[in-house]
Amino acid sequence: MNGTRMFQSAPAVLVASVALCLPVLAPDFMLFEFSIAVSYGIAILGLNLLLGFSGQICLAQGALFGIGAYTTAIFNVNFGMDPIVTLPFAAIVTSLIGVLIGLPALRLQGLQLAIVTFGVASAFPQLLLKMDSITGGVTGLAIDQPMAPRWFPGSQELWLYGLSLICAAASVFMLSRLLRGDTGRLLRALRDNPLVAESLGVNLTKGRLAAFAASSALAGLGGGLFCILNGFISPQSFLPMKSIDILIGGIVGGITSMAGAFIGAVFIVFVPGWTTAINPALGGLIYGLCLIAMMMVARQGIAGLPIGRGLQALKHLFNKKGLSRVSGAVPGQLGGE
């Protein structure tokens, strides 16, 4: 059993090791791109929680991401707070708004929830423009970028990358704590069979709202980090397509996998650039085909690819011992449980 666990957590181990080796291998501007990917990854983590673990489709993740970013910016510009200190506030404010969105969600079924939340995502940039006294409207907001402290040996990019990794680690830690306990079981019950759960006395309302709150907090944290990394935000960065990108990132990475969230984030940050680099005229076409092909090859996302099982099969080749295994994902499995 121990061996199986190890192989099941293969994606997580892979992601973690790549993340740590990156500063050595990648030049500064690539570290910047990876930091951006990490910030998206945290938001996708929130989506995984909501969609993968609790079965609720929320297409407003991009708008919540934007709320986190703007909270950080507004706190920094209006109250002079250090951007890093604003991050918890960004998470909390976004969490509250997420619960507000979750309230009508209690009455809505899957597809309807998706459409209403997509509507929220569509309205978000216009709201930003309308409330221009707070948000700076079209001009956007520029914040003071936190400089690396003097004792730090590396570059500014490395410092920001380290910050991103710390935020990501914190998110993953908090999420796994959340999922391990009662709340986690509650959420899984919510996804797999809400009727049975309710008849057994599970409080689904609390579960749903908790899921929204946690997912939005993560989106807000990611957004705040995004703002810090860029130093400037404007409504143009938070169009409805951003929510769709986050959704794509989540599903391509593996919607029930925490490592998948970050894999998916890397996908949405880097792959569009690669497909355009292959052929500028056909860039969009290739990206569309890429998405389709990805889903045909990796039904459960990249993290769902049997890397673990592949390695295990390799091990069997040497041991020549056959083990009977239940094929397919065990309900409630996540990378690392």
Partner: peptide, 17 residues
């Protein structure tokens, strides 16, 4: 020439690149 889809964040990434 680099593609940024008019997203300011991607423009920044491209200009850095």
């Amino acid at each position: 020439v680099e593609d940024d889809g008019l997203d300011p964040q991607r423009t920044l990434t491209n200009v850095r690149k």
